[in-house]
Design a protein around this nucleic acid. Structure first.
Length: 417
RNA sequence: CGGGCUGUAGUAUAACGGUAGUAUUCGUGCUUUGGGAGCACGCGGCCUGGGUUCAAUUCCCAGCAGCCCGACCA
């Protein structure tokens, strides 16, 4: 999938840790740190190590596939934004922005990548002239910087995080609404492909828009949101705006409403013409009339999605990655240090590599079997392949999410993977 | 930004108003290899500033940092 899909564990940049950092309480922070996926530079500021970056890239790739499928065009916008962008919409003093002194020693005159509605509205204004140019949708995957008063829960709330943001441009509210539904479907697909079940939740717009918006929530106890969700039809409202409470009847189907904790991994906003008005983003319609473009914006937090997956998929031993976002497909483990086993491991590693299987090869010398098994459980790669004297000429296969072990030859394994 | 808790080696921890101990990691050597192996030797540490004191890693204050709760937010 990437340029290098086969890695020797003896050469891996990171190592596993026996102990979790003492202060971390959230499962995702503990396991991702112990497994060597991420490194915390500051509270809410993480570096992604090779293992973690592979996961993130897989999530990014799934997102790209679904965004492209609904006509989104990937681009990359500037991260440094002149003050005029946010002052144009009254958001310069909102207070969650990192301001910088770029080019001005006396006062901040820029801010760094908080969100891009203003930036893309201005860009669009210079290319959109006619109704024939619309609709249009563009997205990017870029780091966002938010002044978080309280970063928390590992990857779930950071000051710096990778986000996919999609912006769409339409001739009418009606056209926006149609696209909005399309994006909602694409979002459900994205999270499903990441192994997660997303709940479409009615919510407020915050600093982005006055209209109601929708969040994609994943049920999890560490979640900081509470949603009122129908057990039957899954209609859901964020408790912030909901008049529903546990025990109420669902307004859609009459089922029972429950209040549950959830993590917001994505959201979609109908923006109307707020940003087009601020940046004079207009088009000429069929009758020659000038009108403001109707916009929508749609976000997904990549790191947060990764953290959420860990919160949802783990056991007492470590992470149990959903197959589509696992850093590798297979974890090949060679147990005996005897030359015969070494040679065999190398051969199998080569063959897996040729067959295009993403594999992490635990070729470490002098590391006991128990330690290798524990590391494999912690890292959470879907298929564990073990070779040792005991397996003779075959390979023992075990899925991370099951205790069943089977021994088979390489051909069968290649079919299985 | 308010409240609480915590800062000791790379990591996790212990004790102590006077010489900082253990485990693990790391390095060297040997023995080991199916669920975090064994022996030996070695490297490595008290967040910062101020105060109290003959003496502070220890007590007090402040700062900074981290975690948790609240407010706020993808």
């Amino acid at each position: 999938m990437f340029y290098n899909d086969c890695v020797r564990q003896s050469e891996l940049f990171s190592k596993t840790r026996r102990e979790a950092p003492k202060d971390e309480e959230s499962v995702n922070a503990k396991l991702l740190t112990r497994g060597g996926f991420v490194y915390k530079n500051s509270a809410g500021v993480y570096s992604f190590l090779p293992l973690g970056w592979r996961v993130l890239k897989k999530i990014a790739d799934i997102i790209r596939g679904e965004m492209d499928a609904i006509g989104g065009q990937e681009m990359l916008m500037a991260a440094l934004h002149d003050k005029r962008y946010l002052t144009a919409t009254g958001r310069w003093d909102v207070g969650v922005v990192y301001k910088v002194f770029a080019g001005n020693e006396d006062e901040p005159s820029f801010n760094i990548s908080w969100t891009h509605e203003e930036v893309i509205a201005e860009i669009a204004a210079s290319y959109v002239n006619s109704y024939q140019d619309l609709p249009l949708a563009a997205y990017q995957i870029q780091t966002k910087f938010r002044h978080e008063p309280r970063a928390k829960s590992g990857l779930l709330r950071g000051r710096e995080f990778l986000m996919k943001d999609l912006y769409s441009f339409h001739v009418s509210e009606n056209d926006l609404n149609k696209y909005y539904q399309k994006v909602a479907k694409a979002y459900h697909k994205i999270f499903k492909r990441c192994g997660l079940k997303s709940i479409y939740t009615l919510a407020a717009g915050g600093e982005f828009t006055v209209s109601n918006t929708h969040e994609f929530q994943i049920l999890a106890d560490v979640g900081e949101d509470t949603i009122c969700v129908c057990e039957k039809c899954e209609y859901a409202e964020n408790k912030e705006i909901s008049k529903l409470k546990t025990g109420d009847k669902c307004p859609k189907c009459g089922g029972a409403v429950m209040e549950k904790r959830a993590i917001e991994v994505g959201n979609i906003f109908p923006l109307g013409t707020k940003y087009s008005e601020a940046f004079n983003l207009r088009f000429t319609d069929e009758r020659g009339e000038k009108k403001y473009v109707v916009m929508g914006s749609y976000g997904i937090g990549l790191g947060r999605t990764m953290g959420t997956a860990v919160e949802v998929f783990h056991d007492g031993r470590g992470i149990v990655w959903p197959e589509n976002i696992a850093p590798f497909k297979a974890h090949l483990i060679s147990i005996n240090r005897k030359q015969k086993t070494e040679d065999r491991g190398q051969k199998i590693y080569d063959k897996l590599q040729k067959a295009g299987v993403e594999v992490l090869y635990d070729d470490r010398e002098g590391v006991s079997a128990g330690e290798k098994f524990n590391d494999a459980d912690l890292i959470g790669i879907p298929y564990r392949l073990v070779i040792s004297d005991k397996t003779k000429n075959e390979i023992e296969v075990k899925r991370r999410d099951s205790d069943e072990m089977r021994t088979m030859n390489l051909e069968k394994i290649l079919k299985l993977l």
